[in-house]
Structures are given as C-alpha cells and as structure tokens.
C-alpha cells in the first residue's frame, strides 16, 4: 500500500498506509482527522489514482441537505413531462412515469453508490454540516444503500472506498464514529516532511530543503492561530526556488514569510521569535 501511494506522489506515514489498506480490505469508511493542510484530501485523491478508481467528492458546508448530497427530483423535467402528456392520460400512468430514474438527478452520494465501477468517495469536512446530515449518512455508510420513498431501495452495485475528513471544529456523533476506522493525521516528522518537500520541489537543493523544513518545524512549535501546513511548506519551497535562494537567512525569511504565515498577529510572533533565531545560527554556520 505504502509503495503504491508513493508511486502516485503521496508519501504516507506508517499508520496512514496501514489504515488505507484496512479500509480497502474491510470496506469500512475511514474518518480522517487532523489539522488543516496535512493532506487529508490529498490522501483521497492519491488513493483514487492508485486504485485506478474515479473520485467522487462531496464538499460539506453548513446547511447541506439531502437534495444536494443524495438525489433530487428533476422538477422541471417532471413538469414538462406532465404538460407534454396533457389531457388523456390518467394520473396513475403519469405518476408512475415521472418518478422514474429518468427524472432523478444523482448527487455525489447517489453517484458513488449507483456507479458501475467501484469509486473512491470523499466526504470532505464532514464537521461543517449539522448533525441531522450526519444521521442521514449513517444508512449510506453502514449498508451502502439509499432509500428513496418513491423508488424503493437503491443498493450499491459496487463497494466504494469512503473517506470522511474532519477539521475537528466540532465533535462528530458517536454513531458516525462507530461505523468508521479512525485515522489521525498530524504534521509529519522532520525527515518525512523533508521527503515530501523534495518530492514536490525536486530542484531545490538538499541543504535549503532541510533548512526550510527545520524552520517550518520551529514555526509550528510556536502557539499560532494557523500553523503552516504541508501545502504551505511546498509552496514556500517553490517560492524559494523561483527566487533562486541559496540559503534561508533572516532577510529571506522576512521577505517570504507571508507564504507560510497568514495572520497579522501570527506574523508578528513569528518575525519576533524565528527571525531572531535564524540570525544567530546563520552566523555560526
């Protein structure tokens, strides 16, 4: 599993690889939690391309409802149908007609379940929705089926791999957690992150990359509103590459800091602490 994910440009940690392996074996959904920007969504994409499956993504937000997530009746088409039938046909015939699959608009969950080919279903930021929506997901996640009052039960033809991501902004219900495997993604260890950065910015010299990862580690150790994510360290690596920087010293850091720190108060803190720290070892080295 680990080598497979590696081959599509995602460097998983040990537990990440293991849990993804279990997920594909057991067919259980995985709840992925962790701070923003540690590659939760990326993991789903990598899994999809490694397994050679299509990725169906459902982005959650407050107020997301069944109509947007599961299915919706195509009212307009139904209306047209009724008007086209005009007089003559009985109500029963029309009713049977307009509640057919033809008039169903499949939304992500429905698409994932009804798909002929197995897919990877990503339910992103599940913590943004409300609890009612979570409850609705339970049926989908445990039995992989959706009941539509007018049509009956739609059962999954294939077994999708399901990933749910959460940024921890609220506690998810026990019922949902119970149905999932749990994976906590954290910021990677120094060596691991170095590898990731080198993978995404291969032209960056070894020493600069190492220095960059060390600095990122320092910044994360501070108590910030938003610590830099992996995506941001990659961005920073690319920015440094563009600037043709040879070494990260205090000046370079001050100029490019805005790539990794994105709050005014955070910037002050970082400039204060890390900027100073950078100056002293840079002189020694």
């Amino acid at each position: 599993m680990a080598t497979g994910l590696r081959s599509v440009g995602y460097l998983p940690g040990e537990s990440t690889a293991l849990v993804s392996y279990l997920a594909t074996k057991l067919g259980k959904p995985v709840l992925v939690e962790g701070p923003a920007g540690v590659g939760k969504t990326e993991l789903a994409k990598a899994l999809a391309s490694f397994l050679g499956r299509e990725l169906v993504r459902l982005q959650c937000y407050e107020g997301l409802d069944e109509a947007k997530a599961l299915y919706e009746w195509n009212y307009r088409k139904q209306l047209l149908r009724i008007q086209a039938e005009a007089t003559g046909t009985g109500w029963d015939a029309v009713q049977e007609d307009i509640f057919g699959e033809e008039f169903l608009l499949a939304r992500p969950l429905m698409t994932a379940i009804a798909s002929e080919e197995p897919v990877v279903l990503l339910i992103d930021e599940i913590d943004k929705t409300d609890q009612e929506f979570e409850a609705m997901l339970l049926e989908v996640l445990s039995d992989f089926q959706i009941s539509i009052p007018e049509l009956g039960l739609v059962k999954a033809r294939t077994h999708p791999v399901v990933l749910l991501t959460s940024n921890n902004s609220r506690e998810l219900t026990e019922a949902l957690k119970r149905r999932c495997l749990y994976l906590w993604l954290d910021y990677p260890a120094l060596e691991h992150e170095l590898e990731i950065v080198r993978l995404h910015a291969p032209e960056l010299s070894e020493t600069v990359a190492r220095r960059l990862v060390e600095v990122i580690g320092m910044v994360r150790a501070l108590d910030l509103k938003k610590p830099p994510s992996i995506a941001e360290s990659i961005d920073w690596a690319r920015a440094l590459l563009l600037l043709g920087v040879k070494d990260i010293d205090a000046d370079v850091f001050m100029e490019t800091m805005s790539v990794i720190v994105k709050h005014r108060t955070d910037m002050d803190v970082v400039a204060d602490r890390v900027g100073l720290k950078l100056r002293s070892p840079a002189d020694v080295a």
Binding site: S15, V19, K25, L26, K177, Y182, L183, W184
Partner: peptide, 29 residues
C-alpha cells in the same frame, strides 16, 4: 471491527498491531 482488522494484518509487527487496534478502538485524538 478490531477482530476483523486483526485478520487482515500480521501480528508480528508491533506497530501494525497497535495501529490497527487504534484505528478501530480509539475514535478521537
């Protein structure tokens, strides 16, 4: 679930054993 995952992994690696159990038994940080 814990028993189900134990069928899928080798028990000789302590790390795998622990991670697999953790993924099924501990559902928050």
């Amino acid at each position: 679930d814990a028993f189900a995952v134990l069928e899928e992994i080798s028990w000789t690696s302590q790390e795998d054993f622990r991670e697999a159990l953790a993924a099924t038994l501990a559902k928050s940080q």
